[in-house]
């Protein structure tokens, strides 16, 4: 169970022959993911550690039947890589690359959404982009399409995890793991201002997933994604949701590493996010370990 990826997912890696692409391809394989091929334009025909390399996503899909692509292409070509995968009708595209220009992401996200709508209109599976600047996805015990450390996922469980931050995703996954609860699927949505999939997009998937009992949302300052999530939870979710907000002590006007993590005027303040979650009856943990207590309490209600 879980959402988005599972043991049957067939994954191609765009940028497999690069340093990051290569090491994470190996780690995903170790995890048990079906990594079926790599795409590096100009290196088509190469055998890379047993994986066939193709010149294009379309060729790789044709040859392998891949239905997920993970992208490690450097920033200048990353949005183009997303569009290539989307036009090849890969239903799930995960962009790991950090540092992609925001304007490129605006254009890519808009085009992916148009392709998604077109595909669905014609009875297709649609096209979804996750990220960029994200750690990817893990469905515990089945598949990892991302860069999370394998060893924090020893204990499959029934808690869904969604996060804007990479390292805090690991932190939360490990806490849940060590507390004996474990995760169903982990979704790192990414820390950039313009991303393909938001909290509010993922929540309905967890709500519908039989393998998930409760959801942990790891937010941070900046933007209004947490507020949108709270709004959705209030109107649509029956499963309990627990939240955490990072950067509560950050000053306004300073960008905290993530391009999206900045308080501008009244937008993106922790107060606004806390109020929104309170209004949606979502408990917010003050510290990360408290997440565990709140999840336990929510499940016992």
């Amino acid at each position: 169970m879980g959402i988005l990826v599972n043991k049957d997912s067939k994954v191609i890696v765009q940028g497999m022959t690069g340093r990051e692409g290569a090491s994470h391809s190996r780690a995903m394989k170790e995890f048990g993911t079906q990594v079926v091929a790599g795409v590096t334009p100009g290196k088509g025909g190469l055998d890379f550690e047993g994986w066939p390399i193709y010149n294009s996503v379309a060729e790789a899909k044709e040859a392998t039947g891949a239905n997920v692509s993970i992208i490690f292409v450097p920033p200048a070509g990353a949005a183009d890589a997303v569009l290539e995968a989307a036009h090849a009708a890969i239903p799930l595209i995960i962009l790991i690359t950090e540092g992609v220009p925001t304007v490129d992401m605006m254009k890519a996200v808009q085009e992916v959404k148009a392709l998604d709508a077109q595909s669905r209109e014609h009875g297709g599976e649609g096209v979804r982009l996750i990220g960029g600047n994200c750690p990817g996805l893990v469905t515990n015990g089945e598949a990892k399409v991302g860069i999370m450390p394998n060893k924090i996922y020893t204990q499959p469980g029934r808690i869904g995890l969604i996060s804007r931050s990479g390292t805090l995703t690991y932190e939360a996954a490990k806490l849940l793991n060590d507390a004996g609860m474990g995760t169903s699927t982990t979704v790192g949505i990414g820390g950039d201002p313009v991303i393909g999939t938001t909290f509010a997009d993922v929540l309905p998937m967890f709500e519908a997933d039989d393998g998930t009992d409760a959801i942990v949302v790891i937010g941070e300052i900046g933007g209004a994604d947490e507020e949108a999530a709270a709004e959705y939870i209030k109107g649509h979710m029956k499963k309990p949701v627990v939240a955490f907000i990072s950067g509560r002590s950050a000053p306004a006007g300073k960008r905290m590493g993530h391009a999206g993590a900045i308080i501008m005027g009244n937008v993106g303040t922790p107060e606004s996010k806390l109020a929104a979650f309170k209004d949606a009856s979502v408990p917010v943990a003050d510290t990360m370990p408290e997440i565990i207590d709140l999840v336990k309490a929510a499940l016992h209600q």
Partner: peptide
């Protein structure tokens, strides 16, 4: 190591 962990 990582924006999220430093923010926290």
């Amino acid at each position: 190591n990582g924006a999220g962990i430093v923010m926290t």
